[in-house]
Design a protein around this nucleic acid. Structure first.
Length: 416
RNA sequence: GUGGGUGUAGCUCAGCGGAUAGAGCGCCAGACUGUGGCUCUGGAUGCCGGGGGUUCAAAUCCCCUCACCCACCCCA
């Protein structure tokens, strides 16, 4: 036997048992998102490396150590997308969507790639469904995103979740707070971990969610960003909170929540399942990204759902469609029966043909093992009578169905 | 990138220096030739993840490697 080849590290197959759940999750998520007026956009998986350096940030972990980067035959420096917001903004600008509508709501879904060590709920190829709002300044847009996420979870019957929310401040607050933080931390720079020393120079805010004990010790003395926020930022945040409370959505303020992408301004949030560390979805506001990527000043906000993680939380649907297992006794029955069946198929009923030659007994054994509920038998005896033999595997009852009544019979089954 | 765990039959796992590598479940066949579930009988199946080493002898001990799982970093 030849050597078998397996999928590469961190990239997995999603098998039928799971794709059933994925289909449910996708359906519900798309439904909710569309109910809020979002339209689908499909963007490439490959982009210029520069796009992610400029949006996600050159000094983020994502860009520095987790990206799949390669050169194509034309010597272009490309990357597999580690996230999709950058691509959506790129497309938004490339096609001048900003000129067509004041507020543009877009959503996407598809695989993302990060060269990470795989572990629970984390893969090198993982899937996100995301939504972005362009041209919306109001805090109600931020809240809308969170309401959408909450509705999706509710439809999927996932409870025990809550949102963590913070503000990293508007342009001015973000800079002011960064300065305060920098001044404060620089005094004790030698006590910080290696990573935080570089963060100190390139992205101070990230020091806030460092998990190293010695760093945490220093961080706890740092003034909270909540004390620094300007009136505008405070009001923005408070409006979101009020809105969420009125929607009965659980959330807590986490003043250390920063997120690893540089483009966020003001609102950042994560969706967490109670008792779990990793977030199922995350997002926030990015008022400067469109401008930074060469467009007009356009306030925007969005979220991304980690599908691999969300699907782990959803129970499979219990009600299943009608499936009928069909088998034949003898070659003549097989020949004629196959045609008859294929010509009578109707929507909503699965007719699964078994072409194997077995004794009736063994056929029923197989049907039993595969937990078939309905079985259709066609053998010589039936053929001369122009009928199928239908057997209900649950109660063992059976009856003959004339060929010309077969379609009606199927319709009848559907309505039971 | 760092740390820990695990790789033996299709699946779950036992065996942890000694003979032909086992169990349960599953699979195939028969008892029972057109009526399933229960029972009984028989059967097939393994590069013991891969490579190297130690040894009279390796699934078992050592080294390397790959994969998976878990945690950290980071993120969805």
């Amino acid at each position: 036997m030849a050597e078998t080849i397996n999928s590469v590290r961190g990239m997995r197959d999603i098998l039928p048992r799971e794709t059933k759940i994925w289909q449910i999750v996708e359906r519900e998520a798309f439904n909710v998102i569309e109910e809020f007026g979002f339209e689908e956009i499909r963007v490439p998986v490959v982009e210029e490396l520069r796009l992610f350096q400029r949006s996600v940030g050159s000094f983020t972990d994502i860009v520095q150590k987790e990206m799949y980067v390669f050169k194509d035959k034309g010597d272009r420096l490309l990357a597999l997308r580690p996230e999709a917001t950058a691509s959506v903004v790129r497309a938004y600008l490339q096609h001048q969507l900003h000129a067509k509508k004041r507020v543009t709501r877009l959503y996407y879904s598809g695989p993302m790639f990060r060269y990470d060590r795989p572990q629970k709920g984390r893969y090198r190829q993982f899937y996100q469904i995301g939504a972005e709002i362009f041209g919306g300044e109001s805090p109600y847009f931020d809240a809308e995103l969170i309401v959408i996420l909450s509705r999706i979870l509710n439809r999927l019957k996932v409870s025990h979740y809550s949102f963590e929310i913070n503000s990293v401040g508007c342009d001015r607050c973000k800079i002011e707070y960064s300065n305060i933080l920098q001044k404060f931390l620089i005094l004790r720079a030698n006590e910080l971990c290696q990573d935080c020393q570089t963060r100190l120079r390139h992205n101070v805010l990230r020091v806030l969610d460092c998990k190293v004990v010695s760093c945490r010790d220093i961080i706890k003395d740092v003034p909270s960003i909540q004390q620094i926020l300007c009136d505008g930022c405070k009001k923005h945040q408070q409006t979101i909170y009020n809105c969420l409370m009125n929607h009965n959505i659980q959330f807590i303020e986490n003043s250390h929540l920063v997120r690893g992408l540089d483009y966020y301004t003001m609102t950042v949030f994560e969706l967490k399942i109670n008792g779990e560390e990793t977030a199922v979805a995350g997002g926030g506001r990015y008022n400067n990204l469109v401008k930074d990527l060469g467009g007009p000043h356009t306030p925007a906000a969005g979220f991304a759902i980690g599908m691999d993680r969300l699907c782990d939380l959803v129970a499979p649907e219990t009600k299943e469609g009608i499936e009928i297992l069909v088998f034949f006794l003898g070659d003549k029955a097989l020949q004629q029966g196959t045609i008859l069946i294929n010509n009578s198929r109707i929507e909503g009923i699965k007719l699964i043909l078994d072409y194997n030659e077995r004794s009736l007994k063994n056929h029923l054994k197989v049907a039993d093992r595969e937990e078939a509920k309905h079985v259709l038998i066609l053998g010589d005896d039936e053929l001369v009578e122009n009928c199928f033999l239908y057997r209900n595997m649950k109660d063992g009852s059976q009856k003959h169905i004339k060929f010309d009544q077969f379609s009606n019979f199927l319709k009848g089954l559907k309505n039971v």
